[in-house]
Design a protein around this nucleic acid. Structure first.
Length: 282
DNA sequence: TATCGCCCCGACTCCACGTC
DNA sequence: GACGTGGAGTCGGGGCGATA
């Protein structure tokens, strides 16, 4: 069963931690390295698994088994064989798909602010059974991209567009490098250069850089850079503006960053950038 | 070891509504 | 009427622990 409570143990100090508030902890980076089972006498170390394919939870550290009387004790088992990955291709995401990703961010934030409980589907269909002696199922991994040089275009070969995972700034990992993710955060600073803009966005106490570079401006409408000047002036006036974007995750100066390639790949205050700047200028 | 069942996210579809 | 947008609901994929 997933674990939602843990003990943060550091320098003879024990602090209870809930999965719902760990990311708000002022020492989050250190906390997630020093998590232990809450059951009295159980020394099992835990790791934090951020929300991704499944909701956020704590899981038992590899080979750090729980004591047999612990409520979280389980016998370890080998994992089933996964699908065999025979090839990897990149697919250019359509504007429609990117808009859907951005709109889902908006929808989720509204649900969180309203305190809406997660949905459960009581009429869900059972998972189809695998036939005995079925042949191995080779799979093609499709990596979503917004940049140039994609192997596939949206809808090509009737292949569904690949999922764009949402990541919080503090939970990016090396697995995210080279693929497309969605990110949200409040704009802290706008750096304007020749054919280059860098936006600092903040989530809790963490800062994350979003880059708009030559490729972006080559494909953007004429004088698009002027919109960033307006954005900077709004941010400099302490306007609290929410940025949400879909872009390529890279590392620069040993930090994770996002590269935005198209002008429709990001929102400010849940509006397309041009729409937001136009409404803010009225 | 192979598969099941639960759970959740993201893609997709449909429909209502507003604007031009 | 055409088009764009927003919201609700459905469907499918896949991670993970449980189980035969």
């Amino acid at each position: 069963m997933p674990i939602y409570e843990a003990i943060y143990r550091y320098e003879d100090m024990d602090e209870p931690i809930l999965v719902s508030n760990i990311e708000q902890h002022e020492h989050f980076t250190n906390v997630k390295k020093n998590l232990f089972c809450t059951y009295n006498g159980c020394p099992s170390k835990l790791s934090y698994v951020p929300r991704g394919k499944v909701r956020a939870h704590f899981k038992t550290w590899p080979k750090a088994n729980h004591t047999k009387d612990c409520i979280d004790f389980f016998e370890r088992m080998e994992k089933a064989n996964k699908q065999k990955n025979v090839a990897t291709s990149t697919m250019m995401l359509s504007d429609k798909h990117i808009k859907s990703v951005l709109d889902n961010l908006k929808k989720r934030r509204k649900e969180q602010e309203a305190g809406t409980p997660p949905k459960t589907n009581i009429n869900k269909k059972p998972r189809p059974k695998v036939k005995p002696n079925a042949l191995e199922n080779p799979s093609l991994t499709i990596v979503p991209t917004t940049g140039a040089g994609a192997d596939l275009t949206s809808g090509q070969n009737n292949i569904k567009e690949p999922p764009v995972r949402n990541r919080s700034i503090i939970n990016l990992t090396d697995d995210d490098i080279g693929t497309t993710r969605s990110i949200e955060g409040y704009i802290q600073n706008v750096l304007l250069e020749e054919n280059r803009v860098v936006i600092d966005i903040q989530e809790n106490s963490d800062i994350f850089k979003v880059y708009f570079e030559q490729f972006f401006f080559n494909n953007a409408p004429v004088n698009f850079s002027g919109l960033f000047v307006t954005l900077k002036s709004l941010v400099d006036k302490n306007k609290r503006l929410l940025f949400s974007g879909v872009g390529l995750i890279e590392t620069r100066n040993e930090e994770y960053v996002m590269l935005i390639n198209k002008n429709n790949d990001f929102y400010v205050e849940y509006k397309y950038f041009t729409v937001f700047i136009h409404s803010a200028s009225i």
